[in-house]
Each structure stands twice: as structure tokens, then as C-alpha cells.
Design a protein around this nucleic acid. Structure first.
Lengths: 273, 273
DNA sequence: CGTGACGTTGAAGAAGGTCAACCAATGTGG
DNA sequence: CCACATTGGTTGACCTTCTTCAACGTCACG
């Protein structure tokens, strides 16, 4: 899409971690192997020993788990540019499966090569950790989405998230973006059933908020859609990017600002719905 | 509980990462500051700049988010020995809040000191990342729990998880362990309401699977409870611990085993409930 | 001994699931 | 080019699960 697989990787890491010229060049030397996946092809299974890191070049992939009653829960999806399994660097045994939601193309970097460049540029490890951290952050948000919002809000929130992650910069108006998910897949993401997704989509359509067609989402009113989905921009801001170039492998320390002065107890916070 | 705060930290990291004598000694020099928290005291708020890593020494803490309708979703809980916020090493701005579910004691290590020792022993970074990874893994499991299981299974699964994390090694028989959660807190964890938690607990009690009292969980039949909760042991095995001492900062490469030969497409997997 | 916090219960209703049928679009082999 | 199969979407009827609201009980603690 944007260039060679290595370029895509560099661009991605740079979004959250400032990389020096040398670090970028080291990454450029990785030359990930490209793999084509057909729709619904699982490329990592539960229990697999994952000795590589994958990056999505085109298409759409997902991490999922199966409940013992056969229900599938998708726990993350990756758009082009996203890393699939940065966590494998420290946790090679995968506890979830990964599949291509549509025909996709991924770049694969063998862990051995990664470790080699990381040995020379330890800050790259931070870069990968940061990607894994963003994924974790996302899982947490999905937890809130599924745990505390009703069906309509869940779908709205998801679409908002995907719009931003697709690079849209909505301004309260209408726009459309690529979103080739089936209703069954939406169900697997949101913890609902396909039938109910269908009904929710009808409501959103009738309310002139959102129209989903086969491959694209037509957002009719970003403002209201975000309200319905309780979507707060910035929850996935790439801005975790530290502006300074400090890493976890510094040469020197720094003054030490502290936070949370430690407020005393306050009215017990217990909520539920 | 087990010794000095630093010892607790060392023990914890050692569970997933083999540490050399020198690394352990470096950690021992950290001397975390100890903080006492009363029940319901928030010690990290959304948006806080977190310049330290905390470890629970006693009590019980939780990460949570608030939906805009006021509903609270707990997205992780930490038992004594657990790290609260390992992710802060690469992502200092917290997007969730942290609170003490009961009166607790935590050890706090300033990031500056952490970076200092990490500069000398880069593999320690891996150790912290591994903790963060375990937390992420857990969030994913909770996603499956909330997204794909009914109330009874959710509660059963949670209790099973907490039993193992508390150090129990159940053998199909009855046992009890410390679990000082209120029903409202259980609701905030499982995405249910307090009232419904109460009813579910009654059913579990009547079925002679589980009795929850104020501060302790009495598991009456581990086997069946695990079945009801679809709990598969090993999902939280600490065994992510790499037996070898390879890190992401190796001095030399290694032969390169590959996985996932790339099976062709198979019958489309679409499930929902 | 009064006041929270926590647990318990009932009644009613809403949200979402299940089952089943049907439709439209697409693709495939003859 | 057509008959047929497959996938994904749509809808209705019915039922289950969970929530909501409201009341009341109980225990601990100042």
C-alpha cells in the first residue's frame, strides 16, 4: 500500500516511537517475507509457537478465541499497518488464534532477525512493546464496550474506532470508509448474535446515523454516532508517542516528578449499571 | 507477606523470567516505597502521568473505566504479588484508573530507578514486558468471558481464575480461599448488575458448587465449577516463562524454527452463540 | 442506637437470543 | 447460458436472561 513491507513497519513504529536514522535503516534491512491469505484462513492457532512478528499489509485480520459452546469472540482486529502479534517477542506461545477476516496480505519478520537488530538498537524493543501496549489498551476498551454498553452503543463505538483507525478525520459530517466486515463478524466482535446485529444496523440506518454496505461503512452523522457509541476520541491516540527520546535504556537519569499525591478515601465508588 | 517489597518484586519477575544473580541484586537495590491505601482509594486516575511501577503487597487492587452512563467496568484485578501497571514503562499516560478494592499496601518503584537498573540489565525490560503481556492476556480472557458466557459461567470462571491466582492447587475437591470482593464489585468485573450477581450466587450455592461469604470463597466442587465456568486451567499458566535464558537482547542468533506452514482455506468459521 | 454499606428478594419489563423461513447476490459445473 | 449451491442479509414469533425499581434485612461501627 504505502511501500515495501519494511517501510510499512518503519512507518508504524515511528507513529508511536521516535526512531533514529540508524534504527530505521536497521529495520529496513529486515525485508519481511510476504504471505497471502485467503478469507477465513487461520494463520496462527492456539498453542502455536510463534517465532515471528507479523504486520498486516492489506486486508483485515483478527485475533479470536472460541468458547467451549462454539461461540467465537474476536478480541482484536488489525488493519493494514497494524502489528498482529508484537507480544510474541516475550510470549511466543500464542493463547489465541489469528485469522484473516478477508483475503489479506501480511509481512512476516522472523524473531531471530528481530532479536539481531534489537541487540544493536535496544530501543527498538520499546517500540515493539509500545505496539503491544496499544493492543492491550484496545482490549481494555473493548472490555468496557462489551461489558457496559448496549448493542447499539457497541456497534456505534466499534464503527467509530474503525473509522479513526482507518485514517479518517471526521469533522461532524458524513463520510465513508472501507469496512468489509460481515454481520456475523460484527457479532463475534461485539459479543452479540448476527441476528441482533442486523436489527441494530437497521435502527442505526433508520436514525440516519450509519449505513453499512457489503464493503464500506457510510457514516451519515459522525457527531451523533459518536454520542450513541459513547466514543471519546483520543482513546486510541497514537500520542502515547513520547516526544522525548528517552527510552527504558537510558544513559542517565533525570529529575523525578511524582504524581498522585494520594487523595484520602472518598464516597465509595460502586456502580454497575 | 513474603519479605521485603523488593523480594516480592524479584519473586514475581522470576516466576516468568529467569533472572541472574546480578539482576536480582540490582532489583533488590530498588527498595520500593510502601504506600497504604484505604478501601476504595483511587491511586491512579485517568490521564495521570505515571512515573512509577507499583506492585501489590497486600490487599486487592483493580483497574477500571467508567462508561459515560456511570457504569463501572473493572478490567483487571491485582492480587498480592501482581504488578499494577507494568505498561507504564512504555506508556506513562494512564487511560484507566486504579483503585484499592479493599484496604491495601503497595510498593512503588520510581521509573527513574527502574530505567537506571534496566540500562545495565536490559533483560529486565523483558521481564516487565512479560508482566504487562500477562495482564494483556488476562484482559483477552475476560473479553471472552464477558462476550460469550452467561452470568453463571462468568462468575464461575472468575472464581476459578482467582482461586488459581491465589495459589490454590485444587484437586477436584473442596477448598476455600481469600476473596474479599463485594457483590457490587463482582458485578463491575463481570459486566452484570449487583442484583443479578446475587441471584447467580444463590444458584451456585443451591447447586453446591460455591459459597461466597464476606471475605472468603468456599469452593465445594472444583471440578463442576470449572465445567460451569468453562475454565481451562493453564490459560494463565505462568509458564510463559522461557526456560532458556534467551532474551530480546541476545549476543548471537540461533537456528530458526518456523511455524504455521500455512494451511489452505477451510470451511468458513462463523459462529456467534 | 443510628447510620451506612452490603446482601436479599419480588415483580415487572426490556434487551437480546433462538428458531425458522425467505431473499438476493454470487459463483460453479454441466 | 442455466440449474443449483453457497454465503450473507432480513424478518417475524417466541422465549430467556438480565435489568430495573423498590423494599427490606443484617451486620459492623462510631
Amino acid at each position: 500500500m504505502l511501500g515495501s513491507p519494511a517501510d510499512v513497519l518503519i512507518a508504524r513504529l515511528s507513529a508511536r516511537t521516535a526512531l533514529s536514522r540508524e534504527e530505521q535503516e536497521a529495520l529496513a534491512g529486515l525485508a519481511p517475507e510476504v504471505r497471502d491469505l485467503v478469507a477465513n484462513q487461520d494463520f496462527i492457532n492456539v498453542g502455536d509457537m510463534v517465532e515471528h512478528v507479523d504486520i498486516v499489509l492489506a486486508g483485515l485480520t483478527a485475533r479470536f478465541d472460541l468458547a467451549s459452546d462454539g461461540g467465537r469472540q474476536i478480541t482484536a482486529i488489525q488493519l493494514p499497518g497494524d502489528l498482529v502479534n508484537a507480544r510474541a517477542v516475550v510470549q511466543p506461545i500464542s493463547r489465541s488464534a489469528h485469522t484473516a477476516l478477508v483475503a489479506s496480505k501480511i509481512g512476516t519478520v522472523p524473531m531471530t532477525m528481530l532479536r539481531r537488530v534489537a541487540a544493536q538498537y535496544p530501543r527498538l524493543i520499546d517500540a515493539f512493546w509500545r505496539e503491544a501496549a496499544a493492543d492491550a489498551e484496545n482490549a481494555i476498551q473493548w472490555l468496557v464496550n462489551i461489558g457496559r454498553r448496549d448493542a447499539k452503543a457497541r456497534v456505534a463505538h466499534l464503527v467509530c474506532e474503525l473509522a479513526l483507525r482507518s485514517g479518517e478525520q471526521p469533522l461532524g459530517t458524513a463520510f465513508a470508509f472501507n469496512m468489509p466486515l460481515t454481520q456475523a463478524q460484527l457479532a463475534d466482535i461485539t459479543g452479540l448474535t448476527g441476528v441482533h446485529i442486523n436489527r441494530v444496523l437497521r435502527v442505526l440506518r433508520e436514525e440516519k446515523l450509519l449505513i453499512l454496505t457489503a464493503k464500506t461503512a457510510h457514516v451519515l452523522d459522525w457527531q451523533r454516532l459518536a454520542e450513541v457509541g459513547q466514543f471519546h476520541r483520543g482513546y486510541l491516540d497514537l500520542a502515547a508517542r513520547s516526544d522525548d527520546r528517552r527510552s527504558s535504556h537510558p544513559s542517565a537519569g533525570r529529575p523525578r516528578p511524582r504524581s498522585s499525591p494520594g487523595q484520602p478515601a472518598h464516597p465509595p465508588r460502586v456502580a454497575s449499571r
